[in-house]
């Protein structure tokens, strides 16, 4: 007699009873619903409270579009720079031995441990009118604080650990044997990097870039300090939302907020996809290592 063994759920010593399992599941789902799904839904509800027309006019408003453009510009500068920095730092840390390595690793984590407000204030202290470089910048008619460059700088500071953090453990796990093989086969260091190191870490790299981008577009605190809040000029999306909200323009605020949360949802979906690819790579690697 044939028994369909795939249908038999094996009993495990660590499994709890059905009741406990359901209660736990319910608690987790309820918690998620209350604190995540409900607020997210309310963003869209508020944005569409007065129908589609006010929603689209709020989004297509000149200042709102300027905020979207600025946000994209800032991310377009900060993310590639941090990707390059992250790859360079991870490469150096994972593949070479040098003095001060642990200090570099700690420094990379610094933006994670510093409050975003302080990250912004650092730049005010350096480049503001009363800061170290303030008088010099003013004499040369350069403006960093309360301008786009300040926003870019603050965003770079806040988001720079993402790519490096993602790549360091991955590169360390992969070791240097493949690079050595490439070198012996006659590849230059540059070719080895492009043809061996980078392709081996591409999923991790994309994952890091994705997280970096989400943060770069969503950053509020640090950017708020250096922005100057000039409507249509130095407001990124998060700052624009705050401004509208403070002016009691709820539809406008939530309409722009819905765009930002859309970004979050897209990021999540991509993240899931990348994780899946990335895990698969890691798994085959582990299997290989085990053999």
């Amino acid at each position: 007699m044939a028994v369909d063994i795939t249908r038999v759920t094996p009993r495990r010593a660590t499994a709890e009873s059905a009741l406990v399992r359901r209660l736990l599941l319910l608690a987790a789902l309820g918690y998620l619903g209350l604190f995540l799904v409900l607020p997210l839904a309310s963003v869209y509800a508020q944005a569409l409270a007065q129908g589609l027309k006010p929603y689209f006019s709020a989004i297509l408003d000149r200042d709102a579009l300027a905020a979207v453009k600025l946000t994209i510009l800032v991310a377009a500068i900060a993310v590639p720079l941090n990707a390059v920095f992250g790859v360079a730092a991870a490469w150096a840390i994972a593949k070479f031995e040098f003095r001060g390595k642990s200090i570099l690793i700690t420094l990379i984590d610094l933006p994670f441990s510093v409050s975003p407000v302080i990250s912004g204030l650092i730049y005010v202290l350096m480049f503001g009118i009363h800061g170290w470089f303030g008088p010099w910048l003013q004499a040369h008619d350069l403006k960093i604080i309360f301008g786009v460059s300040g926003i870019v700088l603050a965003t770079i500071f806040v988001t720079f650990p993402f790519v490096a953090r993602e790549l360091i453990p991955l590169m360390q796990q992969q070791g240097t044997e493949e690079e050595e093989a490439a070198l012996v086969l006659g590849a230059s260091g540059w070719l080895t990097f492009w043809r061996v190191t980078l392709p081996n870490t591409k999923w991790g790299l994309l994952y890091g870039i994705l997280l970096c981008n989400a943060r770069a577009m969503g950053e509020f605190g640090a950017v708020s300090v250096v922005s100057g809040h000039i409507r249509g000029r130095t407001l990124t999306m998060p700052l624009h939302i705050e401004l509208l909200y403070n002016e009691y323009d709820f539809v406008g605020a939530f309409a722009v907020a819905s765009l930002l949360s859309l970004l979050a949802l897209v990021t999540l979906a991509l993240k899931r996809l990348l994780e899946w690819r990335f895990q698969r790579d890691k798994q085959t690697y582990r299997q290989e290592a085990r053999r």
Binding site: E178, E180, A181, L183, V184, L185, G186, T284, Y285
Partner: peptide
Amino acid sequence: RRAGERRIGLVFQHYALFRH
């Protein structure tokens, strides 16, 4: 001489094949 200039074939203990 750099490794690549020596024209030496090296087979690693754990193969070190390019996994991608």
